[in-house]
């Protein structure tokens, strides 16, 4: 059983390259011949995670682990960490500034969207240290 992993660094405030990691992930999955349904879910999850790293974090990485049964996306950053995870998970809640919102980001849907497109969603955060999000998508037969 083969498995394969890729890691993409994501810089804080790097709006110009934002979306590049998700784009590359999408290309890889397509090359692997995955079903478009699973590709869409992974791409949304990866894109939301990537945007969160750009907007909210001090920088971090997006990692993807692929095996024939599942895809795991791991987003890990160097801080600043989330104070209240339950609040952050609420739809529409965002700590993004007014400027970021005007740009069309920070709608408070990032984390809920990530959860929605994953089969297993885990989030750990330590204030001052960083946040780690793990999204697992299972490949069903036919996917």
């Amino acid at each position: 059983m083969g498995n394969i992993s890729y890691e993409f660094p994501v810089e804080k405030d790097d709006f110009e390259r934002a979306g590049e990691a998700s784009s590359k992930i999408k290309k890889i999955l397509r090359q692997l011949g995955m079903d478009s349904g699973i590709i869409r879910r992974v791409a949304i999850g990866a894109y939301e995670a990537e945007m969160n790293l750009v907007i909210h974090s001090l920088g971090g990485t997006i990692r993807i682990d692929i095996d024939p049964k599942s895809i795991i996306i791991t987003a890990e950053d160097k801080g600043p960490g989330i104070h209240d995870i339950n609040l952050a998970m609420k739809e529409g809640y965002s700590t993004a500034t007014e400027k970021i919102r005007e740009m069309g980001f920070g709608a408070g849907m990032g984390l809920p969207n990530m959860k929605r497109c994953s089969d297993i969603f885990e989030i750990q955060s330590i204030v001052g240290k960083g946040t780690k999000i793990v999204m697992k998508m299972n490949l069903k037969d036919g996917d």
Binding site: M1, G2, I4, R30, L32, G33, S36, I66, P68, L139
Partner: peptide, 23 residues
């Protein structure tokens, strides 16, 4: 219809192996 011509292999396990090799 989509044309998945960029696909490495029809079998996902095989295409993962191929991608490993490419990397």
């Amino acid at each position: 219809l989509p044309k998945p011509v960029m696909m490495l292999d029809k079998d996902i396990s095989k295409s993962i192996q191929k991608l490993e090799l490419v990397t």
